[in-house]
Each structure stands twice: as C-alpha cells, then as structure tokens.
Simulated scan of single mutants.
Amino acid sequence: MKFYLLRFLLVTGVLTLLSGFVSKAEKAFGDEEYKLVWSDEFTKNGIPNEKNWNCETGFVRNQEDQWYQKENAYCKDGFLIIEARKENKVNPNFISKNHRDWKKQRDSIKVTSSCLITQGKHSWQYGRFEMRAKIPVKNGMWPAFWTLGIEGNWPANGEIDIMEYYTGKILANAAWKSDKQNVAWDSEIKKLTDFKDNSWADKFHIWRMDWDADAIKLYVDNQLLNEISVKDANQNADQKIFPFQQPHYLLVNLAVGGINGGKLTPDSFPSKYIIDYIRVYQKKN
C-alpha cells in the first residue's frame, strides 16, 4: 500500500512540475488580458528551429563589417547564442573595389555573425513582444531585437527597434516614411551609465514591446523607454501602407561596426549575444 501511495505522489509531483513548466511562458506576466500565441524557448541543442527562423546571408545593410551566415547561431543549454567571430575568407560576391555597391567592393570577409528572421514564417499585428537576453557590449558590437512590416519597402513598411545597442547606448526606436523627409525617426536613447550598475551588461534583462492600434511602448525591465504614436506614422496624403497597422515579423541579430556600431578593438572578439527566450502575446477577445 505504501509503495502505491509513494508512486502516486511521485507521479503527481512530476505532472505538477511539468504543468508548471508548460504554463511558465503563458503566465509570465500574470496578466489575464494576454494569451501566449508564439514563443521560442531554445530548449533543443543545435541549429535554431527552422520552423521559426530563416537566416540572412552575406553583407546585408548599413555597411556593417560582418558577413551573416547560419553557422554563427546555435542553441545550447536552453539559450540561443549568436556569436560574432573574427575570420578571414573570400567574399564570393566581390567584383571590384570601385563597384558602386559596397557589398561587392570588399574582396574579403573579416567578421562573421548571424541574423535570424521570422519573415515568411511568422508575423503578428499588435501584441506584447518579449525577449530575455544578455547583450554584448564590447567595442563595435551592435545587437538588436526588432521588427519590420510585411508590406512595402523600408522605410515605408515601418521599423520598430525593441532593443538596439551600440557605443554605450540603448536605443528604443521606430522609423517610417515621411512626406517631409525620406525617413522619420522617433527615438529615445539611454546610456549604459544611466543604469548606475557597473555589472548591468553582465546580466540578463527583459526587453518588451506593447503595441496596439494607438501606441507602441518599448520597455527594458518594466522601465518605459519610449512611447510612439501609431497615428504619427499615418500622415502622408498619398499613403497606401500604414506601417504600424499591419503585421510585422521579427529579427534578432548581432551586427558589427558599420555606420553606427563603432570601431573594433583586438578584444572585441569573440562576442556572444545570449537569448533565453522570445515570446509573443496578444490580447484575448
């Protein structure tokens, strides 16, 4: 009798533990208003889940130093790790150092990294987007967690930078096409020194966006960094795309150098962007 009772208690305890684990993401905020609609917890070692992510390849944007390749993103011990490495390889797209396209001017690849995107696989209009991560802050590092609209070319499709870091600064941004200028930015900047914690960059932090038809609110550790009016991006007389009133897909990447990342130093590599989870919640009906 005691044996069966003990076995019953053990099984019950295991089931309770598993139930708690499954509902961890769903109850992360303790907010009855939201339900979990998508997440990646990065629990399986190896390549990132191909049902969730595509990988960019090559020199892509902002004259950044890194060549994006899938080999620099991997899951280990419950984390997604995106690693910037110093390498020396031939640029297969090189044509001439005088070519008008900067991507074809470079004869070699000196830095590699990864950019993962959900484009063509997952996108969402409105909700609560959250990432728990530890960001690299060595010289030249430019990690980001951001979104782009599925319709239109940049900047008309709209960009939201839930987390962007470079040269000692945390940025919370949104960008769109304006009738007064090609790109309009709503940006707030916070210096790392503003956190008054010398070990801040060595810790994990929670980055969050709350987005609805009226506003985009960007947070770190529940501290509001920036609030953007959705209607401010809908002012063009001939506007056909409403950048923040359409589905967006996610990007998570570690860029290096380029127009904003800053100069590299010998101790810049390797650098690791370590992500615990990425989750998307939406309001219940």
Rank of each mutant, 00 (worst) to 15 (best):
S123L: 02
S123H: 13
S123Y: 12
S123R: 09
W124E: 13
Q125I: 04
Q125R: 11
F129Q: 01
E130V: 14
E130I: 02
M131Q: 04
M131V: 02
R132W: 06
R132Y: 00
I135N: 04
P136K: 05
V137M: 05
K138C: 08
K138G: 08
N139C: 11
W142D: 01
W142M: 10
P143N: 06
A144Q: 08
A144G: 11
A144E: 13
F145L: 11
F145W: 08
F145Q: 04
W146G: 06
T147D: 02
T147P: 00
L148Q: 13
L148K: 10
G149Y: 14
I150W: 03
I150K: 13
I150A: 00
E151C: 00
G152F: 13
P155V: 06
P155T: 04
A156V: 10
A156F: 02
N157Y: 05
N157S: 11
G158F: 14
I160H: 05
I160V: 13
I160Q: 03
D161E: 05
D161A: 05
D161P: 02
M163Q: 05
M163D: 02
E164T: 09
Y165S: 00
Y165R: 00
Y166F: 15
T167S: 14
T167A: 13
G168Q: 10
I170G: 00
I170P: 00
L171V: 11
A172C: 08
A172F: 14
N173E: 11
N173K: 09
A175P: 02
A175M: 12
W176N: 06
W176G: 02
W176D: 06
S178Q: 01
S178Y: 03
D179F: 07
